[in-house]
Deep mutational scan, measured.
Amino acid sequence: RPMNAFMVWARIHRPALAKANPAANNAEISVQLGLEWNKLSEEQKKPYYDEAQKIKE
């Protein structure tokens, strides 16, 4: 299954978030990633939607 825009973004940002929160488990990191993603504007998300579309094609 191809990655969606959030997954493209999260793949880039997960390592830094995990390093900054070494005690957090994957579920907690995923929740935090979701919160951070939701704070982004549509303009900030656009490159990730574009990349996800390329992956689908």
Results as ranks from 00 to 15, higher is better:
12 I>Y: 10
30 S>W: 15
8 V>W: 03
28 E>Q: 12
57 E>S: 08
48 Y>H: 02
42 E>T: 13
22 P>T: 03
23 A>D: 14
24 A>Y: 12
40 L>T: 01
38 N>W: 09
25 N>L: 05
57 E>I: 06
13 H>M: 14
49 Y>G: 03
46 K>C: 04
23 A>S: 13
13 H>D: 00
45 K>H: 01
48 Y>F: 10
49 Y>E: 09
36 E>D: 09
37 W>H: 00
34 G>V: 15
56 K>A: 15
51 E>H: 06
49 Y>C: 04
13 H>Q: 07
7 M>N: 09
5 A>Q: 01
50 D>C: 05
23 A>W: 15
30 S>P: 01
9 W>F: 15
42 E>V: 13
19 K>P: 02
24 A>H: 06
39 K>L: 10
28 E>I: 08
48 Y>S: 01
45 K>G: 00
35 L>F: 09
49 Y>V: 08
38 N>Q: 11
15 P>W: 05
11 R>K: 14
15 P>K: 09
48 Y>N: 01
43 E>I: 12
35 L>K: 11
18 A>P: 01
20 A>M: 11
18 A>H: 10
50 D>N: 07
53 Q>D: 12
21 N>P: 01
56 K>F: 15
40 L>M: 12
46 K>L: 08
42 E>C: 12
9 W>D: 00
18 A>Q: 13
25 N>F: 03
23 A>I: 07
57 E>P: 09
55 I>M: 12
15 P>R: 08
55 I>K: 04
39 K>I: 04
10 A>Y: 06
50 D>Q: 11
54 K>Q: 11
14 R>V: 04
22 P>G: 03
44 Q>K: 08
3 M>E: 09
32 Q>A: 11
45 K>N: 01
18 A>E: 15
9 W>P: 00
1 R>M: 14
56 K>P: 08
7 M>V: 08
8 V>Q: 03
47 P>N: 03
35 L>H: 10
50 D>G: 04
47 P>F: 09
32 Q>V: 11
32 Q>K: 12
5 A>E: 03
17 L>A: 05
1 R>T: 14
56 K>G: 06
28 E>L: 06
14 R>F: 11
48 Y>A: 01
49 Y>H: 08
7 M>H: 10
46 K>N: 04
15 P>N: 07
38 N>C: 06
15 P>G: 11
45 K>M: 03
23 A>G: 14
37 W>V: 00
2 P>N: 09
28 E>A: 10
57 E>G: 10
34 G>H: 15
16 A>R: 12
17 L>G: 01
31 V>Y: 13
40 L>N: 01
27 A>D: 13
39 K>H: 04
55 I>T: 06
39 K>V: 04
47 P>M: 06
29 I>Y: 02
39 K>S: 08
3 M>R: 06
46 K>S: 05
33 L>R: 00
3 M>K: 07
52 A>T: 03
14 R>P: 00
29 I>M: 04
39 K>P: 01
28 E>R: 04
44 Q>G: 05
1 R>P: 13
49 Y>Q: 05
5 A>K: 00
47 P>T: 08
54 K>F: 09
42 E>K: 14
5 A>M: 02
55 I>V: 07
16 A>P: 03
55 I>D: 08
42 E>I: 12
40 L>A: 01
47 P>W: 08
5 A>G: 09
1 R>H: 13
26 N>A: 11
55 I>R: 05
53 Q>I: 13
12 I>W: 07
40 L>S: 01
43 E>S: 10
52 A>G: 03
19 K>W: 09
30 S>C: 12
19 K>A: 14
19 K>V: 08
20 A>H: 07
44 Q>R: 05
31 V>Q: 13
57 E>Q: 09
11 R>I: 13
23 A>L: 14
42 E>H: 12
28 E>N: 03
3 M>H: 10
8 V>N: 03
26 N>Y: 12
19 K>I: 09
27 A>Y: 14
49 Y>N: 04
10 A>K: 03
50 D>F: 08
26 N>K: 12
41 S>H: 03
1 R>F: 12
9 W>H: 01
8 V>T: 03
21 N>A: 03
38 N>D: 12
8 V>H: 05
32 Q>R: 06
11 R>N: 15
15 P>I: 12
31 V>G: 03
57 E>N: 11
33 L>S: 00
38 N>Y: 08
43 E>V: 10
20 A>D: 08
16 A>W: 08
12 I>H: 07
26 N>G: 11
33 L>T: 01
41 S>E: 04
47 P>L: 05
21 N>E: 03
6 F>T: 00
23 A>N: 14
45 K>S: 01
37 W>T: 00
27 A>K: 15
28 E>C: 03
22 P>Y: 03
29 I>G: 01
40 L>H: 01
35 L>W: 08
26 N>E: 12
37 W>Y: 02
39 K>M: 07
24 A>P: 02
35 L>A: 10
38 N>E: 12
31 V>L: 11
40 L>Q: 02
50 D>S: 07
7 M>R: 09
14 R>W: 07
34 G>C: 11
47 P>V: 07
46 K>M: 08
44 Q>D: 12
16 A>D: 07
25 N>M: 04
30 S>Q: 13
54 K>E: 08
21 N>F: 12
25 N>C: 04
6 F>C: 03
39 K>C: 05
47 P>R: 07
17 L>D: 02
6 F>Y: 11
47 P>Q: 05
21 N>V: 02
24 A>D: 04
53 Q>M: 11
11 R>L: 13
48 Y>E: 00
37 W>N: 00
38 N>V: 04
28 E>F: 09
29 I>K: 01
42 E>Q: 11
44 Q>V: 07
26 N>R: 07
43 E>A: 14
11 R>S: 14
51 E>N: 03
15 P>T: 08
52 A>V: 07
53 Q>L: 11
33 L>F: 00
21 N>I: 04
49 Y>K: 07
36 E>Q: 10
35 L>N: 08
32 Q>D: 02
57 E>D: 12
49 Y>T: 05
24 A>V: 03
11 R>Q: 14
52 A>M: 05
5 A>I: 02
6 F>N: 00
43 E>F: 09
4 N>V: 08
45 K>V: 02
13 H>I: 06
3 M>Q: 10
13 H>A: 03
41 S>L: 04
30 S>A: 13
32 Q>G: 03
41 S>R: 04
6 F>R: 01
8 V>D: 02
32 Q>M: 15
4 N>A: 05
42 E>P: 14
55 I>C: 06
30 S>E: 14
50 D>R: 10
29 I>H: 02
14 R>I: 05
37 W>Q: 01
22 P>Q: 04
7 M>S: 09
44 Q>E: 14
30 S>N: 14
28 E>D: 10
12 I>K: 08
42 E>G: 05
40 L>K: 02
9 W>C: 01
9 W>Q: 00
41 S>F: 02
34 G>P: 02
30 S>L: 10
38 N>M: 12
24 A>W: 15
52 A>F: 10
48 Y>C: 02
33 L>W: 01
21 N>Q: 07
5 A>D: 01
45 K>Q: 06
15 P>E: 13
31 V>M: 13
29 I>A: 01
36 E>K: 07
7 M>D: 15
26 N>C: 08
23 A>E: 12
33 L>H: 00
52 A>E: 05
14 R>A: 12
36 E>N: 09
46 K>D: 02
18 A>N: 05
21 N>C: 06
21 N>T: 05
43 E>L: 10
44 Q>L: 08
9 W>V: 00
19 K>F: 10
47 P>C: 05
27 A>R: 13
22 P>F: 02
55 I>G: 05
39 K>R: 09
9 W>A: 00
40 L>I: 03
15 P>H: 09
14 R>Q: 05
30 S>H: 13
17 L>Q: 03
6 F>W: 02
42 E>D: 15
7 M>F: 12
11 R>Y: 13
1 R>C: 09
46 K>Q: 14
27 A>H: 15
48 Y>R: 00
57 E>V: 09
10 A>L: 05
43 E>Y: 08
20 A>P: 02
41 S>C: 03
32 Q>S: 06
38 N>H: 05
39 K>F: 04
36 E>Y: 10
29 I>V: 05
50 D>H: 11
32 Q>Y: 10
12 I>N: 04
12 I>P: 01
